[in-house]
Amino acid sequence: MTNSSFSLSTRNAVLTRADTRTVPERDTRTVPKSRRRWRLRPVRTVLSLIGILLAVIWVFPVYWMLSSSLLPNVVLTSTRPRFFPWGGSLDNFREVLSSGSFFRALTISLQVTLIAVFFAMLFAFLAAVAISRFKFKGRKSFILAILFIQMLPAEGLFIAQYKMMSTTGLLNTVIGISVLYIAAVIPFTIWMLRGFVAGVPAELEESAQVDGCTSTGAFFRITLPLLAPGLVASGVYAFLQAWNEFTIALVILPREDMRTLPLWLRTFIQASQTRETDWGQVMASSTLVAIPVIIFFLIVQGRLTSGLVAGAVKG
């Protein structure tokens, strides 16, 4: 069910841990309880306090975004920051949503992301079936190539991609950016789906065929339903990649009315150079961009954390 054996070993680790943990704990019960506790408690309390402090530091920026998004500019520009959004309202959100530019960017982002996810999933799925269900010449080289391509940074190719799109007249088009996104997402999606496809034993399909299914029928009735969770996880991963992408979009979509959501959010920062920023509205905008991503991320987190996929979501 996982995408690489790296993740498999971490999963096993969690299991073995649960097993080993209980054993020594039972053993220590023979040691006089009071002495142990006396020795351990102060250290543990200090560690817990440090843990809470670090958790607060890590969560603070996200909290500050939400809190600021609810406060009016008058409060945000006062000398003393307000640490809790008392007297807050949704006015900033109302303002941002009424401007129209948000929905323009949302439309572009949705078009690009849906096209990219659909085709990347389709093509990656076919390739994943090929490398996990067939033995053929060049299979190993293909896997190696996929792993290397996945590591290539956008910054190493974007000038050439820019040139290619400008000569073909595809700058500032949904098609142009979608093609680049499909290719950018495919390698990892193949790798991730490959693990899921390999997780469904071929014997299941074969036995269905023995029972009278055609090979296509066996695939659609047996394999596909079993793959559903894997397809969803990979799809969400591909969605997050395309939805958050900034670098390629910056290069390929320079025109104002073609901005995706990340580019739209950036315009607020650019504007802060020349005029007074309404940080409440900027934070409301950030919230609108971040919330769907955070929700989707938390849904697939279990699968993502267990593998290297997780890291790949990083920008």
Binding site: G51, W58, V59, P61, L265, R266, S286, V293, L298, G315
Partner: peptide, 26 residues
Amino acid sequence: IRLVMQIALLLAWATPVVAAVTIWIW
């Protein structure tokens, strides 16, 4: 405490990079 730490880390992890930079600039 571990759960509290994990939730805090997950939220930071999930934040899209452009939103994260915007927040930190503020």
